[in-house]
Design a protein around this nucleic acid. Sequence first.
DNA 1: TAATAATCGAGACGGTACGTCGCGTCTTCTG
DNA 2: CAGAAGACGCGACGTACCGTCTCGATTATTA
Lengths: 235, 235, 235, 235
Amino acid sequence: MQGQDGERDRRGARNGGEPQAGAPACGSSAEVPAGAPDAEPRRGRPRSAAAERAILDAVIALLEAGEPLAGLSIERIARTAGVGKATIYRRWSGKEELFVDVVRDMEPTDPPLSGTAGLADLRVMLESLRTRGLAQRSSVLLVNIFAQMKSHPKLWEEYHGTVIAPRRVAMLEAVRRAVAAGELRDDLDVELIDDLFVGPMLVRTVHRPDAPLPDDLADRIITALLQGLAPAARV
Amino acid sequence: MQGQDGERDRRGARNGGEPQAGAPACGSSAEVPAGAPDAEPRRGRPRSAAAERAILDAVIALLEAGEPLAGLSIERIARTAGVGKATIYRRWSGKEELFVDVVRDMEPTDPPLSGTAGLADLRVMLESLRTRGLAQRSSVLLVNIFAQMKSHPKLWEEYHGTVIAPRRVAMLEAVRRAVAAGELRDDLDVELIDDLFVGPMLVRTVHRPDAPLPDDLADRIITALLQGLAPAARV
Amino acid sequence: MQGQDGERDRRGARNGGEPQAGAPACGSSAEVPAGAPDAEPRRGRPRSAAAERAILDAVIALLEAGEPLAGLSIERIARTAGVGKATIYRRWSGKEELFVDVVRDMEPTDPPLSGTAGLADLRVMLESLRTRGLAQRSSVLLVNIFAQMKSHPKLWEEYHGTVIAPRRVAMLEAVRRAVAAGELRDDLDVELIDDLFVGPMLVRTVHRPDAPLPDDLADRIITALLQGLAPAARV
Amino acid sequence: MQGQDGERDRRGARNGGEPQAGAPACGSSAEVPAGAPDAEPRRGRPRSAAAERAILDAVIALLEAGEPLAGLSIERIARTAGVGKATIYRRWSGKEELFVDVVRDMEPTDPPLSGTAGLADLRVMLESLRTRGLAQRSSVLLVNIFAQMKSHPKLWEEYHGTVIAPRRVAMLEAVRRAVAAGELRDDLDVELIDDLFVGPMLVRTVHRPDAPLPDDLADRIITALLQGLAPAARV
DNA sequence: TAATAATCGAGACGGTACGTCGCGTCTTCTG
DNA sequence: CAGAAGACGCGACGTACCGTCTCGATTATTA
């Protein structure tokens, strides 16, 4: 009617006004406000970074306490965080948007750095995927939150766009480098190659949560792919 | 579960496992459980099969109308179906159980028949997966219902057990046949081989809903896998 | 949006479905359903008379406990009555409508019966007004609830129409009878006469809540009015 | 009352009664409270009279726009006035106190001057009451604000004490003068006489807002009261 | 033919949560 | 210091559903 959206943030504004003295300062990377030179001054009392952390922590705490996540209500989160509901709605437009940030908040930060050329990077990435899978399945939290996200198309798309897609781009790049370096055949669609590498790992980490993820899984996949599955004929 | 279960059905217990080929007659005729000869006669007015269909149809109609599924409430379903809420709760213990049946109700019924030996079956199955993927992404309904299912562990497990697992078993069997027939190397873990085949297809159908699913995708995957990705082969 | 008013009652329907066995049966007069011959059957579970009483009693209890009435929230009333909020909203569209019924519920039922002719009835009515005033000012409850009502125009109008206006009509009738019987001058507007009688009493009961209301007040007013205020000249 | 009262004003102590004719310049210039010469210096930026007027005007504007007054929130008033909420709370401790000042702000300032002796003054006062009644009922604003005040005991008491009571005192004085001058009987309680005069007028202006208030109403009341209602007089 | 019993649509029931609004206080920056 | 702005914890608003519980009215089977 009249409000509809009073300048809602929905993440990204966490940087808005660098942690004012007294706030617990959660992140690690220090972002210089110089990056946004001509932004409007943002009048009024600034949002409390403490409240923000309290909210995220409340969600995490509840999930770790074994809550089924579908059982998390904004009301309960607010109560647990010792925060008004409005303080949540001021930042996120709903449960799902909040959950994205919770996930972002606990992301293993970043994939390992990659070299400049070759198959080695592919192995690193595959291995990272495996590790991630192990971590994820060990945490009730992540299992649930991922499931929840997948059930919300918009949510998933956002997560996909910000987290998954970049990884895929990096992966494709590595494949191209490997092809260029003569480590892989050059008569195949790079996208197909990419899928051949990633697919098997994904099947195990995502689709069969009970499947083993042995230490040498990445190696075994790569070796098998390079050798091919055809029998003696190849010898 | 939650109180006094007044002889609840829950579907599935009704028809155990055998695929009730086609809908079991949606008219009004009362079907005698001839399969269970000496069951107690079930006195009183029998449940209306019409009501049952109306409920399932209501869910499907709502989903097809673009409802986000999370937005489906028992109340709305009942209202849409022109049915009392109790009539739903008499059959299913909750939304999720109902959804399982809805999915069951629209499953493409069965995977294509499989031959008796070899790599050919693998190709058939892969192709079936692809087709299924095409169908699924063309239907808002299936996309949603799958997402929802994944977000509900119990649901997903049931679906997995009834639908996915059997397929995987069949797949593994085919792999073993292929190995035995000398069509595939015999020095690799069959599970790994299976993942190498299924993974790439799954990546495209499930994880990248925008990815193309060309007609020859199954072939290309199989060929690439057999040949191997090492460039030497080309020399 | 879609509901807006699902057949709300707002009093009067209390009779709707005579107290079903087991309900505490609050009223006293037994109403025969034969009076409403062709009413629609009112399907579904009937409203609980017990809940209704619990709500009214909760309001009364809270008010008697010294609550400032402005401090009564639907939420609190529901909690006190052990009732869902919806159960209140199903019957009344808001706090004010509820309050009207609370007042109705505690009305001293009815003014005393009136004879058929004369000044005597006027005296009876005036005396009733005085008594009512005494009762009202002795009850924190009534003081508050009246104040609240006056602050809600629509409310007050309803109360005025159902309770006050009829009294005034009766009063006017009595005045006319008195005039016809030669007890009062016949060259004055009856409305004016009525105001001359009622006004002084009202000033004391309503406008000056601290003013004394001696036993003989009605008599003194009547006597003074009949005699006139002019001094010796009249003798 | 509710915490640490940081030198709150509450209006009325500031300008007592004198009407600050017109709005005292709504610009930005800080006006020195030259009117109160020897008050403590009040360091820092002085309160803006412009803000004060803006607030009062906002309330009046909203009321004139047909707002139900119960629907007036401090937030809305502040928004309408283009003022911070704190600026309101710095002056008044709550909605009601503000409303008192709004009423004071629009009082017809003063009752008409009264002579020194007799029944004539009574007539003047009664006539003033009538005029006031006409004005009040012509203004949605006054109707509402009065209703609201009556519903708030503390408010009403304040208004009563400052506005109503003095009038009654003056009235009683006039009655005494009339009795002393032999214009009225001397064997009656002056309070009763007062009520006999005021009551009928009050009934019409306050209790029956639809009742006519003809020009000669005061006269007719006085005449009837003096003559008395007994028919014998007529013979 | 009647009695018994489970079903049906409808809707009320005590609850929980929704997302919004207002309260009165606080915290920032600008004059 | 006072000003606008707006975030804060809190609590109530009126609505939607939850899963259960009556209602009167159907339909079957059993006596």
